[in-house]
Design a protein around this nucleic acid. Sequence first.
DNA 1: AGAATCATACCGACCGGTCGGTATTAATAG
DNA 2: CTATTAATACCGACCGGTCGGTATGATTCT
Lengths: 201, 201
Amino acid sequence: MSPMQNRSQQTHQKILDAALVVFARDGYAASSVNDICAEAGVSKGAFFHHFPTKQTLFLELLETWLATLDLQMEAIRQEYQAVPQALIHMAELMGNVYQAAGGYLPVFLEFWTQASHDLAVWQVVIAPYHRYQGYFTSLIQQGIQGGTLKPVDPALVSRTLLALAIGLLLQGVLDPEGADWANQTRQSIELLVISIQQEAA
Amino acid sequence: MSPMQNRSQQTHQKILDAALVVFARDGYAASSVNDICAEAGVSKGAFFHHFPTKQTLFLELLETWLATLDLQMEAIRQEYQAVPQALIHMAELMGNVYQAAGGYLPVFLEFWTQASHDLAVWQVVIAPYHRYQGYFTSLIQQGIQGGTLKPVDPALVSRTLLALAIGLLLQGVLDPEGADWANQTRQSIELLVISIQQEAA
DNA sequence: AGAATCATACCGACCGGTCGGTATTAATAG
DNA sequence: CTATTAATACCGACCGGTCGGTATGATTCT
């Protein structure tokens, strides 16, 4: 049943798992390769056998995270349904993100921070960002044409939705005990969706 | 007219200004004291004369930023007016933040990131965060009692408002050319405020 | 003068990354 | 199946360089 990875794959994964822990705890720049090796229980030689540079490891971690996000997005998209409900389902996706992230929410911040300082990271992040923004924009556009949403500016509402998701995530990082953030996210998005829903004539 | 600072105060300020530039460009952890000194045109000896540690400098920068934010918040609070309008004015405050930050928006991210890794920074950040959250909560509560707002959950809406501000700011950091973020912020908050406004009976 | 301010030289610790060598596994041959 | 070879995976000492911070001497102000 289990994939029965060979030693190399196991080590590779151990390093990735350890890096997630260390980056979440100390931040990317403040984390040394030695720290990651110690957490993974692996030698420095093994590290550089699997990853040419520290940045490569970071990018692989980022791409993995984006891939799982894409998977969840696609799952929502598949469930064909009315536009307002699709948006609300997206809120539940964010709830999944909180759950899946476990104690590693700060790495999200780390991704964003590095994107603003490192061109290579930025290029990896900006594409999905625009893709998601476009997805929501067209979804809202579609809702307007279908008559379920008021004639709002789709791009504006799209950026507003993303802002809610991102802003609540950041608050969750800063003050995890301050609220039930998964629940809060659902309710915040519902609040916004209700405000742009077309009342029945 | 000018404050005519003495040499010591000028040097102190030069270091702060330079740190703002360097932190915004490279991030806190990746910025060396030497980099900051070079940017400031000041020797390392001068640096450590004015700041015992690099973290101390960072905290002073953070506290200055929070103080100006407080100042603007207080200015809004002084203008006594109806609750919904006060909230919308808050949106304009965020517009000021964009303007005042100039090219230094990434330092906001840096503040947040460090807060999640460094207890001392976290303690400085968490108090104002809760204060602002409480301020908006009571403002909304007041609006509900005054009949200008629907009977929403004040704390929930407060966190939603903050999420908008933060989330739009983060998008502005990642994709400055992607939108007119100051304008977007105003419209996003208006969208939310309208949705919780009590319709005239 | 003497106290405050700044410059220079310097320190040990640690950084990311390299390298020569050693296990471990896979491939091949007999 | 075993013996041998080749390839891969791994180890840990080590490198040049940079880090935050210090010690000390020069300069500037009061």
